[in-house]
Design a protein around this nucleic acid. Structure first.
Length: 119
DNA sequence: CATCGAACCAACC
DNA sequence: GGTTGGTTCGATG
């Protein structure tokens, strides 16, 4: 199966989003504990819209084995979490991994990395 | 710095 | 065809 789907290209059946899910899983698993990345960062790498990355993560079947909690919004605010426990659990996981949160509820900027830097 | 609104793109109704 | 998301970015206070 293709790793990437060019934006706008039509493939057989549910290939489009399915492939993005796989690619996103792969990329997210590169983010080390104590670090987070953003939807937009992944989206640029895959040449898709950030919203699509969100959707891909939302329908991700393995929320625990894939560290999908290490993806936040570009301004450092949590974003959502469709896994068990919701966003509250997401935040707890991150704190557990050593991610520091500011008073305004955002991730401290020093933890945020662009996935392109991890390649 | 915080909030607001428009743009985004595939799915779903 | 309109709404809806695990968003983003520029404009505005």
């Amino acid at each position: 199966m293709p790793l990437l789907v060019v934006r706008g290209a039509k493939l057989i059946g549910r290939a489009g989003l399915g492939d993005i899910v796989d690619a996103v899983k792969m990329i997210v698993s590169l983010v080390p504990p104590g670090r987070v990345t953003t939807y937009g960062s992944i989206a640029r790498l895959l040449a898709v819209s950030p919203r699509l990355v969100g959707r891909a993560l939302a329908l991700n079947d393995t929320p625990i084995v894939v560290p999908c909690h290490r993806v936040v919004r570009s301004d450092g605010s949590l974003g959502g979490y469709s896994g068990p426990g919701g966003p509250e659990f997401k935040r707890r996981l991150l704190e557990l991994e050593g991610v520091r949160f500011l008073n305004n509820g955002r991730v401290a900027p020093e933890h945020i990395v662009d996935v392109a830097r991890l390649l």
